[in-house]
């Protein structure tokens, strides 16, 4: 059963070559302030680097920020590598400049909710908390 006191561990990641980290850092700070344990990868990570970090740090959630338009390549790739590493229970979520049709397509490929510009950080926090409570064991 879920231990209520267990801290939710989140890896905030910046995949690809995109250097826009304002969103990633704001989210990382907000999640930490909300009591999560947050690890931030830094910039310019490959999908392999992100998945290695997620497995090594034993996180519950990987949250990726992508503003480069490469989301249709990077989200499925990270999902595939996570599943391949036996980490299919890890929630893959994120945000950035992602058109609605792409969000729908990615959600059908096993990616969690994706958040666009203007989303309050509380909405992201609530989403992760609700997801976590919905998991019976971890």
């Amino acid at each position: 059963m879920l231990n209520i006191d267990q801290k939710i561990r989140v890896l905030v990641a910046k995949p690809g070559l995109d250097g826009h980290d304002r969103g990633a850092k704001v989210i990382a700070s907000a999640l930490r302030d909300a009591g999560f344990e947050v690890i931030y990868t830094g910039l310019h990570q490959t999908p392999e680097m992100i998945v290695n970090a997620a497995v090594q740090e034993d996180v519950h959630v990987v949250a990726m920020s992508i503003l480069s338009g490469a989301h249709m390549t990077l989200f499925p790739k990270v999902r595939e590598l996570l599943d391949g590493a036996g980490a299919n229970r890890i929630l893959l979520t994120g945000g950035g400049i992602i058109p609605v049709e792409d969000i729908e397509a990615l959600e059908s490929q096993g990616v969690g909710r994706l958040f666009g510009p203007g989303t309050p950080t509380t909405e992201v926090i609530d989403y992760i908390q609700n997801w976590f409570v919905g998991q019976d064991t971890f």
Partner: peptide, 9 residues
């Protein structure tokens, strides 16, 4: 490393 990002942005 360019995969998925060529000509996008």
């Amino acid at each position: 490393r360019s995969l998925g990002e060529v000509g996008v942005c």
